[in-house]
Design a protein around this nucleic acid. Structure first.
Lengths: 339, 339
DNA sequence: CTGTTAGCGCGTTCAA
DNA sequence: TTGAACGCGCTAACAG
């Protein structure tokens, strides 16, 4: 007897359950799935369920999927750029909501592959829906998945005409910061733009700020910054120069923390000398003093919108012309002490 | 023609490819899988591959799995407690390493379910391996999975006799902090223990510190603290009292940041008045000044050990007595300026 | 009213 | 290079 290594075996099948319960495989299926209008006597039902318990039977999704021609899987490849704790929070909420629809959320660990190679990789699993950043998709790759019966829901800065999208423009984060800063009376703004791999997102956020500023007739400048104290000190000097901005949007809370520190070192008080607004609402924002205002995205709201979109995609008639075009989330300004 | 909504269709099957290439399904299989010793003429091979391309054919893992009786999936349920960005990076590295073994890493979004309910949920997917925290497993649940042909690799504080484990005792983090602090000459230590859901992990880490201190004949106290400035100030006062500790292990870098701030406010200099060591090596540690020393776990090392363990589990003979008992990672002290 | 038989879906593999 | 059979669960048609 080996309690440890019994993994040799095949999993128990419905045939095993049937044998143990003394019924046919069909009966097992009817009982296990609680099929309506299937008239199975209670005693029989009980025998089957007992056998299920005893064997630890769990129907093989592969076989079920093969037969059904459709799966209840939602596949979510990791975003190409790390999004911090998003996998932790959004995934948790989304998973919960989807399971209410009988759907299972699986996160695919691969973060690099894109285009049709990625599409093939995902298609192999025959998920009902792939929920993925637009930057890993191409028109042909989406077509490939859709031909395979897999719906594709893309997170994109703007709606694509060739697919379903959940819109999220990073610029809206900058815009939210701008709206707040303008409302509080600031008339000279600046945006920190990180260097390195984050520059793309950073620029998008900064552009959102700049556009809102322009619309209000307020000047706005970009300030490049690395994630170091030295670079933060340099950025702080730029901010503090005569005629510099009275409020700075810092890309996110980490860059905000660095600039916060550098400004403090240079004797600036916040928000009186300079106002600061970060983004992503990281824990660090609350640890600073004065605490950093931040533009937040609510993971619960994101999960909600994702779930709704997935649902309407699965419910719409096949080959219908309709396209899902929702919004992923509305940025929310969490005002703390630096603004 | 509807370029948008073609998701109606079944995915192209090997039969479709066969038809298009004018060969049999067997041939398609042989070509697609590049089966050794199968002598398929080059022109035939080319026709098949062309058809594969044209149709965007990707073999259905369900069907393959059903036939093979075994899958190449590694399923990793999210840990019950949020682990911040650690997951994000570990998953990325692990995924990459596993794909080198022809394995696919899938993260299961459910974070709540435990015991046999969870086991059933995971078993449905018939993964080759489930890689999961021990706190979601029970002996029967593991048995259930193993009977279903799924290996279970648990992350646990200590090896379990009834399963394969990758050992990671949170106490080792505290121990690493202690080793460092003792080596630098400190003779009165303290550990911050967070309140709330993190208390369990916090106490484990603190105990690691305490044990190491005891072994060195050095006194060590626990200081409870919430994640607020007020609580941090109170903790700082406790630290600064006459005869208080000369070095504090702060549970993690966020609590470290709070205490760092509070100590600074009270005029303490680090590391001269008090030394501080955090943990998890979060970005925030480098943003503080003086920068916070931290006990780090290398996500690459963790991924390595996970991958090795998975491999040896899959390679060992079925029903062998051997048990995998590796170590998840060795804590590494990153010395910065506070110690 | 209660349960069963038969055949399907898709990729793989072995004998032919 | 191929035909046929298999693995597992589902369901329509059918029998007791």
């Amino acid at each position: 007897m080996n309690a440890v290594n019994s993994a040799a075996g095949r999993a128990p099948t419905s045939a095993d359950v049937a044998r143990l319960a003394g019924v046919s495989r069909s009966t097992v299926s009817l009982v296990v799935n609680d099929v309506p209008n299937s008239r199975i006597a209670q005693p029989t039902r009980d025998r089957v369920l007992a056998a299920v318990q005893e064997l630890g039977y769990a129907p093989d999704v592969s076989a079920r999927q093969l037969r059904a021609g459709t799966s209840r899987l939602v596949l979510m490849p990791l975003p190409r750029l790390p999004r911090g704790t998003m996998i932790d929070t959004t995934v948790e909420h989304l998973s919960e909501k989807l399971s209410g629809q009988g759907l299972t959320l699986l996160v695919h660990g691969d973060r690099k592959t894109t285009g049709t190679t990625a599409a093939r990789m995902w298609a192999e699993l025959r998920p009902a829906v792939v929920l993925v950043d637009v930057d890993r998709c191409t028109k042909p790759s989406v077509a490939l998945l859709r031909r395979a019966g897999t719906e594709v829901l893309m997170i994109a800065a703007r709606p694509t005409p060739w697919g379903d999208t959940l819109e999220f423009d990073q610029g809206r984060i900058g815009a939210a910061a701008a709206a707040h800063l303008l409302a509080v009376g600031h008339r000279r703004l600046a945006a920190i733009v990180p260097t390195g791999p984050l520059e793309g997102i950073g620029r998008a956020r900064a552009d959102g700020l700049a556009n809102a500023a322009r619309a209000a007739g307020v000047p706005c400048e970009d300030i490049a910054m690395e994630a170091t104290h030295e670079s933060a000190a340099a950025a702080a000097s730029v901010v503090r120069r005569p005629g510099g901005p009275t409020a700075v949007f810092t890309y996110n809370d980490e860059y905000g923390a660095l600039l916060h520190r550098a400004l403090g070192d240079q004797g600036a008080t916040m928000p009186d000398d300079v106002a600061l607004v970060g983004a992503d609402n990281l824990p660090i924002a609350t640890f600073l003093r004065p605490a950093l205002s931040s533009v937040a995205l609510d993971p619960v709201e994101m999960a909600d919108h994702m779930c709704t979109a997935v649902r309407s995609m699965l419910e719409r008639p096949a080959r219908s012309e309709s396209v899902v075009n929702g919004v992923l989330a509305t940025p929310l300004l969490v005002r703390r002490e630096t603004s």
